[in-house]
């Protein structure tokens, strides 16, 4: 067995590489699901929290909205304000048996990370919606859109673009923080790393490999998200469309002539 550092790394990787990569795939899977579901929760909560209430609305609607917003606020504050590790223990070993619910470790992991991310995303989405100029809302309302249409077609697409960096942040945090879920026995990367390090007594080498794998995962994700952002911005240039065949030079193209009742 080689005794130098690099030799040690190779040995660990040969013996436990597959196991650690499986763990990495698990981490990535939990992080992906947690981020995507968390974003959906966040959008839902953020949307409800930004529903405008005026004195003109009927009292029942106002009371219901008030109650729903209160519950959502409690949810956001509670899950942001307590450690995820404690939440995992609390939910998996306490709440679920108490309620008589049986979830697999995987389901529990998805659930815990999702609601946690959701709590953070709710505030991010709310911020994203508030960051859009009120003129956009007015423009949408002025052509007769209702609140849902305004949100769906005008505000959310712009808010989503603005919060993309924060979604990327959350994904990266989730890839790393999924390791917290090893306390309920999820076999993700850090769990496998601990096992490998303990079996071979090669902490330094094993954790070096773990760090490299984590970094590759997070760096790849952040690059993919940056690429996505650029795509969302659309092209910096636009083509002029013209029916004038004489002006048919570069940067122009003919659009289908679909005029109305003219001539």
């Amino acid at each position: 067995m080689p005794t130098d550092f690099f030799g040690g790394v190779v040995t660990v990787f040969q013996e436990y590489g597959v196991s650690m990569l499986e763990g990495a795939v698990a981490s990535l899977r939990i992080a992906m699901v947690g981020t995507i579901v968390g974003c959906l929760i966040g959008f839902a909560v953020g949307l409800v929290q930004t529903i405008p209430v005026t004195d003109k609305d009927n009292p029942v609607k106002r009371a219901v909205l008030w109650a729903v917003k209160l519950v959502l606020n409690v949810y956001v504050e509670f899950f942001r304000g307590t450690p995820m590790m404690a939440q995992a223990m609390f939910i998996y070993y306490g709440l679920l048996p108490l309620l008589g619910l049986r979830l697999t470790i995987w389901q529990a992991a998805y659930f815990i990370l999702s609601i946690n991310t959701g709590a953070y995303m709710a505030e991010t989405v709310r911020g994203g919606i508030l960051s859009i100029d009120s003129g956009q809302t007015e423009g949408a309302m002025a052509i007769g859109m209702n609140h849902v249409q305004t949100m769906l077609y005008v505000i959310l697409p712009q808010a989503l673009r603005n919060i993309m960096p924060q979604i990327g942040n959350n994904l990266i945090i989730n890839i790393k923080d999924s390791c917290v879920l090893s306390v309920i026995g999820v076999a993700e990367l850090l769990y496998k790393t601990k096992a490998a390090a303990g079996a071979l007594y090669k902490n330094f080498e094993t954790y070096t490999i773990a760090m490299i794998i984590y970094f590759i995962m997070t760096f790849t994700c952040s690059r993919i998200l940056r690429w996505l952002e650029n795509r969302m911005d659309g092209s910096d240039n636009y083509d002029l469309a013209t029916t004038d065949t004489l002006a048919h030079t570069s940067g122009m193209y003919r659009y289908q002539e679909k005029k109305g009742d003219e001539g």
Binding site: G135, Q136, E138, G139, A140, A142, V154, Q158
Partner: peptide
Amino acid sequence: VFQQFNLFNN
């Protein structure tokens, strides 16, 4: 029609 146009930026 608004002073600040309010075209949909997206």
